Computed example of a mutant assay.
Amino acid sequence: MRVNNKFLKYAGGILLILILETVILSYVALIIGKYTIIPLGLQQYISYQFFYKVIVIIAAIIVARILGITLYFKLPSRQRTPYLMFMLPLVITATITTIKIVTERQNMIDIFKNLSMALSISIAEDLFSWGIVLVLLLRIFSQISSSNRFSYVILISGVLFAILHLTNFLDQNALVTIIQVIFNLGMGTLLGMTYLRSGSLLIPILIHTTWDFPLIFNKVAIQSTMTGHQFGSASLFMTFICASMIVYSLVAVNPNNIHDELKNNLEPMPLLSRLNIAHST
């Protein structure tokens, strides 16, 4: 009964978070925007999304405190942790973003505005998705005897992360939203893996921010009028990217890799130590 009660508690927490971020907080932000943002003459979409994410950040901190979950930001000791596995995605996304800024020569006001937007989105989504939901999933699967339990955790967290983006149907092209959901299935597993591997929310937040920043610059979510032909090509490409990120993430938490790193006195997933969860079954 103790296991069942814990499962219900953690599963209930995950369900609460999904409802909070997809329905309740979105509605609250819409009301705030209607009576405060729009009358000020600010850009409706940007202002709504920004303040919506600020509300989500506050809610995530409150929910984490209620559930007794610590949001970890400090990086572990370099001597104890193999950094390459989770730093490589950050290097790639940061390089793409830097090229985008340099080649398009955007003014500093636009850079600051869109960077703030990307950062608020990343912090809000990552606090909930990895800081809380991933931890709840780890606690659920810590009671399951399986060498692949960490693979299950990041796959499920990736699916939940993708589901959260279905709310984009409300303010953008449906075909674009479908592609985003496909892509975020892969991105979710990657970000979840980086939190497991690094033990710090800073890494997934930075990866997420540097990836979203160029997309916000292009205003893809607002202006896209994708055709069926474009959808077919883009969805195939995004499916390939998604599959690549999932494979990379699963390799990173492969039981054999973890076992080898433990034998070499490395701590492959510091988050587990902070949560008092064993690396092996």
Rank of each mutant, 00 (worst) to 15 (best):
residue 96 I to S: 01
residue 104 E to N: 11
residue 104 E to P: 07
residue 90 L to F: 11
residue 92 I to S: 10
residue 112 F to V: 13
residue 103 T to D: 07
residue 107 N to R: 03
residue 99 I to Q: 03
residue 100 K to E: 12
residue 106 Q to I: 12
residue 111 I to M: 10
residue 93 T to S: 02
residue 95 T to F: 13
residue 110 D to L: 14
residue 109 I to K: 13
residue 93 T to C: 03
residue 102 V to C: 04
residue 107 N to L: 03
residue 119 L to A: 12
residue 116 S to D: 11
residue 115 L to W: 08
residue 96 I to G: 05
residue 120 S to H: 02
residue 99 I to T: 10
residue 95 T to R: 00
residue 103 T to M: 04
residue 91 V to S: 13
residue 112 F to T: 15
residue 102 V to R: 10
residue 95 T to C: 02
residue 97 T to P: 00
residue 92 I to H: 01
residue 119 L to N: 04
residue 110 D to G: 07
residue 97 T to W: 06
residue 107 N to W: 10
residue 90 L to G: 06
residue 111 I to F: 08
residue 90 L to K: 07
residue 118 A to L: 03
residue 113 K to H: 08
residue 105 R to I: 03
residue 113 K to N: 15
residue 92 I to Y: 01
residue 111 I to L: 09
residue 99 I to F: 13
residue 98 T to W: 05
residue 120 S to G: 08
residue 113 K to A: 12
residue 101 I to Q: 04
residue 96 I to D: 01
residue 114 N to F: 14
residue 94 A to S: 11
residue 97 T to Q: 00
residue 95 T to P: 05
residue 95 T to N: 00
residue 104 E to M: 14
residue 110 D to M: 09
residue 120 S to V: 05
residue 99 I to C: 06
residue 109 I to A: 11
residue 109 I to C: 06
residue 112 F to W: 07
residue 114 N to L: 09
residue 117 M to P: 06
residue 116 S to W: 03
residue 116 S to F: 09
residue 93 T to K: 07
residue 89 P to K: 04
residue 106 Q to H: 15
residue 101 I to F: 09
residue 115 L to E: 12
residue 108 M to T: 15
residue 90 L to W: 08
residue 91 V to C: 03
residue 97 T to A: 14
residue 91 V to D: 00
residue 110 D to V: 02
residue 115 L to K: 01
residue 92 I to D: 06
residue 110 D to Q: 05
residue 108 M to A: 14
residue 119 L to S: 08
residue 100 K to P: 00
